[in-house]
């Protein structure tokens, strides 16, 4: 079966819209009959990534590829890049603004949560150019 691919634009200017792509992907995976645990993992990891793209990187693009045994989400932004990935992966480390914190995010849990809920996470980043995060989820449980 050929992979089903989806392409989304993440609007970096509107925090209220953050999560819209993850919501659409969650809906699609539900319609395709993936098991709820897989769907939840994909939704949460993608959502954290989408929030990061809005609060740190002024938006970008997300490409999702769905195959029966795996789901791959590539989150591509043109933000400032991540200066120290090891530090960014530490729970509690954050460069988010107070405004973002008041909204319930920016507590330094984004990347750790993405790693926690994905089976593989790869980060490619360049200062001043942007960051590409690739999340892979394996599943064999399709109806």
């Amino acid at each position: 079966m050929a992979a089903l691919t989806m392409h989304y634009t993440v609007d970096g200017n509107d925090f209220t819209l953050a999560g819209d792509c993850s919501s659409k992907v969650k809906k699609s995976l539900t319609q395709l009959g993936f098991d709820p645990t897989t769907i939840r993992k994909v939704a949460i990891a993608m959502y954290e990534g989408e929030i990061n793209m809005v609060i740190h990187a002024n938006g970008g693009f997300i490409d999702v590829s769905i195959e029966p045994d795996k789901i791959v989400a590539v989150l591509n932004d043109h933000g400032p890049g991540i200066a120290d990935i090891d530090k960014a992966m530490q729970e509690g480390f954050s460069t988010a603004s107070n405004k973002v914190r008041e909204l319930g995010f920016g507590a330094g849990m984004g990347l750790p949560n993405m790693k926690k809920y994905s089976d593989e996470m790869n980060i490619s980043t360049k200062i001043g150019e942007g960051t590409i995060v690739t999340l892979t989820f394996y599943t064999k449980k399709i109806r």
């Binding site: 925090f15 209220t16 953050a18 999560g19 949460i44 959502y47 954290e48 929030i51 909204l103 319930g104 995010f105 920016g106 507590a107 330094g108 849990m109 984004g110 750790p112 949560n113 926690k116």
Partner: peptide
């Protein structure tokens, strides 16, 4: 009031109590 913690730690279907009222 910290949505990232909710995303990190809530496992079962749960009821959420919060003082935040934004769309997120």
């Amino acid at each position: 009031d910290l949505m990232s913690d909710v995303l990190a730690f809530v496992k079962d279907k749960a009821l959420l109590l919060t003082g935040l009222i934004n769309p997120q």
